[in-house]
């Protein structure tokens, strides 16, 4: 009897977590380079129910689920739409790859290409982290900057550096580190060869969240939550009946 109560409550709790992921996604619908999260669910181990008579188990009744929980939050690494900004230090990556940046905690990866030039002429991200090229942090002399789609950086038409992109064999090895950056877990990524790089100057990659889908999901989560809540109430009601009415002779 009580088991059903926990199963229903697990449904409510999981509903809240799914909702949190959706709200987090929605609040980043305008964040450049944002990659949407998806909550994946798993059911608790189901129980094999058997009929027990005279201390001996007889026939199997079947399996009963014992609830649901959050399995993992997966990041959707598909590309977002690319918008024109005409800002010479805005970059968007078409297709695969990440910009490599250096933070105080080590190398991080991002798809957010809003770069600036700092006081010392270094190319930095909007958070102030150094953008890495072929030979470490990129320092820009003064002058007009042009970047080819292969990431070759020219200053006043003189070749200077190459904006290198990293590619992961398995996106499961990258996790979010806040501020729209990612950190590699386990093996280091491969530096993409020149011919595979597609980076566009004067463009930015918008959030890859499909807001219509997110709202639909939010509605379905709400209703599922409501249903779980009703189930909790119903279980409580049954338990109440069991206590007050079954005992009556």
């Amino acid at each position: 009897m009580i088991r059903g109560l926990y199963t229903a409550a697990a449904g409510m709790l999981t509903g809240l977590m799914r909702h949190e992921t959706i709200v987090h996604n929605l609040s980043n619908v305008r964040t450049i380079g944002y990659k949407a999260d998806r909550a994946t669910l798993k059911d608790f181990p189901s129980l094999l129910l058997t009929e027990v008579r005279n201390g001996q188990s007889r026939s199997e009744i079947g399996r009963a689920g014992t609830g649901v929980s959050l399995a993992a939050i997966k990041t959707d690494f598909s590309s977002g739409p690319i918008k024109l900004t005409d800002n010479p230090l805005d970059f968007a990556i078409a297709d695969e790859g990440f910009f490599r940046i250096e933070t105080e905690d080590g190398v991080r990866y991002t798809r957010d290409g809003r770069f600036h030039r700092d006081v010392d002429g270094r190319l930095i991200t909007a958070n102030g982290y150094l953008v890495l090229g072929e030979n470490g942090p990129i320092t820009l002399p003064e002058g007009a900057i042009t970047v080819t789609p292969q990431g070759e950086l020219f200053v006043n038409d003189t070749p200077l550096e190459r904006l290198t992109l990293a590619r992961f064999a398995d996106t499961d090895n990258i996790i979010k580190d806040g501020q729209t950056t990612f950190v590699a877990q386990g093996e280091d990524p491969e530096i993409m060869p020149l011919q595979d790089v597609q980076v566009y100057q004067g463009y930015l990659e918008e959030s890859n969240l499909d807001s219509a889908q997110a709202v639909t999901e939010m509605m379905s989560v709400l209703r599922a939550y409501q249903a779980s809540q009703r189930l909790v109430q119903f279980q409580d009601q049954i338990n109440g009946q069991a206590v007050t009415e079954l005992g009556r002779v």
């Binding site: 939050i73 996790i175 979010k176 580190d177 501020q179 729209t180």
Partner: peptide, 21 residues
Amino acid sequence: EFHELLNDRLEAPPAGSGRTS
């Protein structure tokens, strides 16, 4: 300009959460 915000790192990263905080 916006950035994705994850909560401060007081809490240990939960396993399988896909995030460091």
